Amino acid sequence: EDDHHMEFCRVCKDGGELLCCDTCPSSYHIHCLNPPLPEIPNGEWLCPRCTCP
C-alpha cells in the first residue's frame, strides 16, 4: 500500500500508534490531540489543521 502519511506525531515528533488524517499527510497520537481522544475513532477522521475554519 502506498501510504503518504507522516511516520511520526505532528505534536511530539515521536512514532508509535498514530491516528492519520483522511485529507492530509498529518499523523497524531490520540493523547497529543487537544482535547485528547479516549480511543482511535471509527470511520473518517480529520485532523485539527483540516477542521479549522
Results as ranks from 00 to 15, higher is better:
E1W: 00
E1G: 05
D2V: 15
D2C: 04
D2W: 05
D3Y: 15
D3F: 15
D3S: 14
H4T: 12
H4C: 13
H4N: 15
H5A: 14
H5E: 14
H5G: 14
M6K: 15
M6E: 15
M6T: 13
E7N: 02
F8H: 06
F8D: 07
F8T: 09
C9Q: 02
C9W: 01
C9I: 01
C9R: 03
C9Y: 00
C9H: 01
R10H: 08
V11R: 12
C12V: 02
C12E: 09
C12L: 00
C12P: 00
C12N: 02
K13D: 06
K13Y: 05
K13L: 08
K13E: 15
D14S: 13
D14P: 00
D14W: 04
D14T: 09
G15T: 12
G15S: 10
G15K: 14
G15R: 10
G16Y: 01
G16I: 01
G16E: 13
G16A: 03
G16T: 04
E17Q: 08
E17P: 02
E17K: 14
E17L: 03
E17G: 05
E17C: 04
E17M: 09
L18M: 13
L18P: 00
L18Q: 04
L19G: 04
L19V: 11
L19W: 04
C20K: 14
C21E: 06
C21G: 02
C21D: 01
D22Q: 10
D22S: 12
T23M: 10
T23V: 10
C24T: 01
C24A: 01
C24D: 01
C24E: 00
C24M: 00
C24N: 00
P25Y: 06
S26R: 12
S27F: 07
S27I: 04
S27N: 12
S27A: 14
S27W: 07
Y28M: 02
H29W: 00
H29F: 00
I30M: 13
I30Y: 09
H31D: 07
H31F: 13
C32M: 00
C32K: 00
C32W: 00
C32R: 01
C32A: 00
L33K: 03
L33V: 10
L33M: 05
N34A: 10
N34P: 06
N34S: 13
N34R: 07
P35M: 05
P35D: 06
P35G: 05
P35C: 04
P36D: 05
L37Q: 08
L37Y: 06
L37S: 07
L37H: 07
P38L: 09
P38I: 11
P38Y: 07
P38G: 07
E39C: 07
E39Q: 11
E39V: 12
E39D: 05
E39N: 13
I40V: 14
I40M: 09
I40Q: 12
I40K: 14
P41Y: 04
P41K: 09
N42M: 08
N42E: 13
N42H: 09
N42W: 06
N42Y: 07
G43E: 10
G43T: 13
G43I: 08
G43D: 08
G43H: 08
E44P: 14
E44S: 12
W45A: 03
W45Y: 05
W45N: 04
L46D: 06
L46R: 12
L46W: 06
L46S: 11
L46C: 14
C47I: 02
C47S: 03
C47F: 01
C47P: 03
P48Q: 05
P48F: 02
R49K: 13
R49P: 07
R49E: 09
R49V: 12
C50F: 00
T51D: 15
T51M: 09
C52M: 15
C52A: 10
C52P: 02
C52D: 06
